[in-house]
Simulated scan of single mutants.
Amino acid sequence: MDDTTADATADTTGILDEALQRLHTSGPERLGRLTNHAPMAVEALAAHGQAGAVHRWLDLYAPRLEEFPAPVERVTDANWHVALGDPRRAADWIAYFRREIADRPWRDVLALWWPRLLPGLYGGAAHPVIRVGHAVRTLEEGGTTGPRLDELAHGLGYWAARHHPVTGLAVLPGARSAAGALDAVPPIANRKDGGFPTRLARVEGLPVWADSVDEPEEARRRLAELVRAATHRYATHGHGDETMLVHAATAPNAVLRALPALPRALWVPSLRAAWTASAAITAMYAPDEPVAYTPPGTFTAEEVFERALAHGDEHVIKLTDTALDVGDERALAAALRAVELSEPLG
C-alpha cells in the first residue's frame, strides 16, 4: 500500500496521532518492569472505530505512566551489539531507531532489524513485539504519519532494550494442530512463584509444532491457526492467569500482523519464534484444569468491543482486538471471559 493512502476503516480524525504524541513523552515501562500498554490500547481503540474514546481512556490510564527515561550512551551501528538486551538503554535505543526511520523507509529498517531482534522476542513478557505489531498495523492500514513512525521507533527500541533469547529447550512430542500442541505443553514447576523472567527460566522443553514448515504462505497459515487456538483456549484456561495468558494469543498475533511488511524469507522463522512464545506462556501460567465457559448471551463483534472498552483494562482491550481478528464465536467468547475475569480500569 502506498504510504499516503489510508484504509477505509482507519482513523482519519488525527486523534490516534495526538494520543501517540502525548504518550511519547512517557517511558516504555513503569516501576522498572511493568510495560506501558497505552500505545497498544489506543491503537486498538482507533482501529475499531473508537477514536472518540481514546483520550478519555488515556486519562484513566495516565497515573500508570512514567517519564521518559534518561539516555545513557548513544547507540550506533558500531556498538549496538553491546547495548542489545540492556533495559537501561531504552532511551538510547529509541533515539537510534528514530534516526534510522528518519533516514530510510520504515519497512527497510524493520526488515533489517526483525531477524536481529526475533531471537529475543521473549524479553519484557513479549510486550515489545506486541507494541511493534500494533505500530506496523497502523502504518500498513492507516498510512504514514510522523507520530506513527515514531511509535514504531519506540516499539523497536523497547524490543532491543528488553531483548532476551531463550535457548536450550528440549524438543517434546507435540501434535499436528496448534490447539493440540498447546494442550500438550507441560506446565513448569512452581507455577505460583516468581514473575515472568523467573518462570521463563523454568521452561525446559516445549512440544514440537510446525517444525516442518518451510514455505512462507504455510507459515502465515500456521500463525493464523496458532492465534485462533490460543484465543479460543483463553475462554477455558484464562483463569490460570487472566492477564498473562492474554499474551499467548496477542504475541503471535503481533507477529502475524507484521508479516505483510516483512520479506517472505522471514515468515518461517517468525512462526517458530511465535510458537515458542505462545507455548512458553502457556507452560508458565496455564491452570491445572480447564473450566467450561458459556457466554452470557449472543453478541456482535461491535458489542463485544464496546464491552471491552467499558471495562477498560488494557489486556481486555488487546485480547478483544485479537479476538476480532479471529472473528468467530469462540474468539468472542474468549473476549467476554476476559471481561469477567479481569479487574476493570479505574
Rank of each mutant, 00 (worst) to 15 (best):
D321V: 04
W114R: 10
W159R: 05
E340D: 15
H164G: 08
E306V: 09
A201Y: 04
A161W: 00
T236C: 14
V54C: 12
A201I: 05
P87R: 03
A201W: 00
L58P: 01
T322M: 11
T9A: 14
A230P: 03
V129F: 09
Y234T: 08
A161F: 04
L149W: 02
I317D: 03
A178H: 01
L172F: 11
L226P: 01
S342V: 06
W114A: 13
V185D: 04
I130T: 09
V75S: 00
T276F: 04
L118D: 00
M244P: 00
L60P: 02
T231C: 10
D328W: 01
A334V: 06
D183R: 14
A160Y: 02
P260M: 10
P186N: 12
P187W: 12
E215L: 13
V109P: 10
P165E: 00
G238Y: 01
T231F: 06
L271I: 06
L58S: 07
N36S: 08
R337L: 10
A53I: 00
V82K: 13
D313Y: 12
R89A: 09
R22M: 06
R104F: 05
E18V: 15
E242N: 13
L169H: 05
D328T: 09
D108N: 06
R89M: 14
V166T: 07
E66G: 09
T9V: 05
P260E: 03
T250R: 09
G123V: 05
A179N: 04
L200E: 01
D328P: 06
L110R: 04
L65A: 14
G142I: 14
G146C: 04
A230L: 04
V129E: 10
W267V: 11
N36M: 06
D108P: 02
A219G: 04
R199G: 03
A70M: 10
V203S: 11
P115A: 09
D3S: 05
A78H: 10
M244C: 07
D288V: 09
A19K: 06
A229D: 02
A261F: 11
P63F: 13
M284G: 07
A91V: 01
E67P: 11
A331Y: 01
F299W: 13
V203Y: 10
L319I: 13
L20I: 15
T276A: 13
R162G: 13
Q50A: 14
E29N: 02
V268N: 03
S342P: 02
Q21Y: 05
